[in-house]
Design a protein around this nucleic acid. Structure first.
Length: 244
DNA sequence: AATTGCCCCAACCGCAACCAC
DNA sequence: TGTGGTTGCGGTTGGGGCAAT
């Protein structure tokens, strides 16, 4: 299951962690905290790179790590948030106390992916996260290096699906109001079925945009891994069944 | 009992964001 | 504003475990 122990070019140990190494790291971080992962292995007496130490602590040694099988509720949460946020594993994991992003990601790929997308056998079909990321990257409102060479036509933003703020909202609306109320499980199909003149959708969109007041992309989505926390703290989203 | 092939998960890698100077 | 160091994230891989043959 684990990797064969070895050494990298700097002489740092790689591969499976031994119980002794775990104990050293646990003892050090518990006592002194994670003040600088780069230097911690040296002070903790470990022949590991800081990155490896951080990963080991975050995914395995942290005292609040919850191990064992997933509950139905946890799995439902993962599927729901994955459909809404895409592969934002850290954001999804933040809504599952004791679960790590790595663990959630693994569980998704090994168990939930096939279950949540019965048509996943077709490589050309658009998965929720693919839809989200590809749309986001092609949106002219998002100021990122990847976008500069791929400007969309001027009128393309006329369509709600091309707006960087409303697009995720549309997907959330579609996944909850359409996918959940019909036999249709493909998010992309549900998104296509959204009636943009529908008053319920308009209220959903306007409120979410107004309350986010511009932070939708800049704060939680891009610079903060607590998107889930931010969204879940939003009473409006709760009252409109955005997640349930 | 031996072999094969798939499943699962710990760990690695590359990249981007963040931050301090 | 630019640069270098650090941290965090998501994709991918390696290999042990185990069921099937």
């Amino acid at each position: 299951m684990a990797r064969t122990p070895g050494r990298d070019k700097n002489g740092m140990k790689k591969g499976t962690w031994t119980p002794e190494e775990d104990e050293k790291l646990r003892a050090y971080v518990s006592q002194y905290g994670s003040w600088n992962w780069r230097k911690i292995p040296k002070y903790a007496g470990l022949s590991r790179c800081g990155k490896s130490c951080r990963l080991r602590w975050m995914n395995y040694l942290r005292p609040d790590i919850k191990r064992g099988s997933y509950t139905k509720e946890e799995e439902d949460t993962i599927v729901r948030l994955q459909g809404l946020l895409g592969n934002k594993w850290s954001a999804i994991a933040s809504q599952l106390p004791g679960r790590t992003d790595n663990e959630v990601k693994n569980h998704w790929h090994t168990n939930l992916k096939k279950r949540s997308s019965p048509h996943a056998s077709s490589p050309s079909s658009t998965s929720p996260q693919e839809a989200t990321t590809s749309e986001n990257h092609s949106c002219a409102h998002e100021a990122g290096p990847k976008d500069t060479s791929e400007k969309t036509p001027n009128n393309v933003l006329d369509h709600p699906m091309n707006c960087p703020v409303t697009h995720p909202i549309i997907e959330g609306f579609a996944s909850l109001h359409l996918c959940s109320s019909s036999s249709e499980t493909s998010l992309s199909t549900c998104v296509e079925a959204v009636d943009f003149s529908n008053t319920e959708f308009e209220a959903c969109r306007d409120t979410c945009v107004a309350e986010s007041s511009g932070r939708f992309w800049t704060e939680p989505f891009i610079t903060d891994n607590n998107i889930g926390s931010w969204l879940l703290q939003d009473e409006w989203l709760f009252s409109h069944d955005f997640f349930y």
